[in-house]
Structures are given as C-alpha cells and as structure tokens.
C-alpha cells in the first residue's frame, strides 16, 4: 500500500474502526510504520478516540435553563423583592419618625393643652330668622356650639347634621336620647372645622326612632361662621 492509496481508502479511519481484513490491515501497518505522515495521522486519530472516551463519559455541558421562581409565600423572600421592599419600608419608617410622629405629637400636645374655645349658643329661634348667631373662630381651630335640642320621648336618639354655605353635608352626628335629656338646657357640640370656609352654616336636628335611618326634622339652626 502506498501513501495515495492509503489516503484514497481513508485507511486511518478504516484501520481504527477495525474495518480492514487482516491482509489489508497488515499492508497498512507496513505502510504507516514507514510513512511519517500516515503515522501521525493514525496517532492523531487514536489520540482523539482515546481522549474522546473520557470526554464522552461525562455529560455534555449545556446551559442551565432559568429556574422558575416558585410561587407561594416564600417567593416573597427572594432578594429581588425583599431588598427594594425593605428599602421602601425603611423610608416609610424614617418619614414617620421624622415627619409624621413630630406633627402628631405637636397636635396631641395642642389638644391636651388647656385653652379657651370660641363658642356660640344656638336656639331654635335663630332658625326662624329672628336674629342670626355669629360664630367667630380662628381658622383651623375648633369651637363649641351650645344647642338647645327639644327632647321628645318618642325618639331613641337624635341626629345633628351640619350643612355648609353651599348646602352640602359637612358632617353628621348621632346623639343618644340620654345625652339630650341630661343636658337639660343645652347640649355642647365641639365642632372641628372640616374646611376653612366662612359663611352661613345650618345645623339640622332630627329625631330618630328605634331602628330608623331617618326621622322628622325637629329644629334647624342657622349661624354665620366668621373665620379669622
């Protein structure tokens, strides 16, 4: 066997794949022992086969698919969520500690501090236009209205509803019948202004039967709020 014949036959591959009959195998061996080029070819192929056994015996390295995040309660604990959540929480705590809490403390301190409140007496007569009660109060500060509510044992409670100058309801208050009866002369209602709007307000008082959501109007008190 000469070199061109060996190349044509792919003799190296056939030899290592054990495809040659014994006499051709012997001829090729005789050739490659004396042909450095074929000898190198055989050695390269043999080395490839030898090393490939080791490589092929280990699993191929494939890119790991992204592991889906398990849904459930503990999914909240993953850093992508916990870190920003913790940062937001710290910001909220800081805001409360530095801004909200001092403001609330100031407000509480203001509320607990004794002071003289503006007040006015509303009688049912004022609702009839005899004279209009004027309430003068500092803007943003509460004031007290003394209201003369006519007690009536038909009602288990009363409701007081404050209407703004525009006629919209500012607030409503349920007053137990006992409170009206024990007040005797007049009932004091502390009013915290919901808005800083001067003008004519109306307080409407209704009598409420047991289980009723609305009752007859008993009195209507008109007053003029002047904010300073």
């Amino acid at each position: 066997m000469d070199h061109s014949e060996a190349l044509q036959l792919m003799a190296t591959e056939r030899y290592l794949l054990d495809e040659f009959p014994p006499e051709i195998r012997d001829q090729f061996e005789e050739h490659f022992f004396g042909c450095p080029e074929c000898a190198i070819d055989v050695r390269m192929a043999a080395a490839f086969i030898e090393h490939s056994k080791k490589t092929l015996s280990t699993p191929a390295i494939v890119p790991m698919p992204a592991v889906p995040v398990k849904s459930g309660w503990f999914a909240w604990l993953r850093p992508a969520f916990v870190v920003p959540a913790f940062a937001i929480l710290l910001a909220v705590i800081g805001y409360q500690a530095l801004v909200v809490h001092p403001a609330l403390s100031n407000t509480i301190a203001e509320l607990t501090k004794p002071r003289v409140l503006e007040s006015a007496y509303l009688s049912s007569g004022t609702a009839r236009g005899d004279s209009q009660t004027v309430v003068t109060a500092p803007a943003g500060q509460p004031f007290v209205l003394f209201v003369d509510i006519p007690a009536d044992n038909r009602f288990s409670s009363y409701s007081a509803e404050l209407l703004s100058p525009a006629g919209t309801k500012v607030w409503a208050l349920t007053i137990p019948a006992e409170a009206v009866e024990s007040a005797k002369d007049s009932l004091a209602i502390r009013v915290a202004p919901a808005n800083n709007q001067s003008g004519e307000y109306v307080l409407v008082v209704r009598g409420m039967g047991a289980g009723a959501t609305e009752g007859p109007e008993l009195a209507r008190y008109l007053f003029n709020l002047q904010l300073r």
Partner: peptide, 14 residues
C-alpha cells in the same frame, strides 16, 4: 458516515 465523522473530528483535533 461514521468513517467521515471520525475523519473530520480527527482533522479538527489535528
């Protein structure tokens, strides 16, 4: 096919 596969692999390795 097997022969050619080995041949190409060997050539690349070489």
């Amino acid at each position: 096919y097997l022969r050619v596969l080995l041949h190409r692999a060997k050539q690349n390795f070489r």
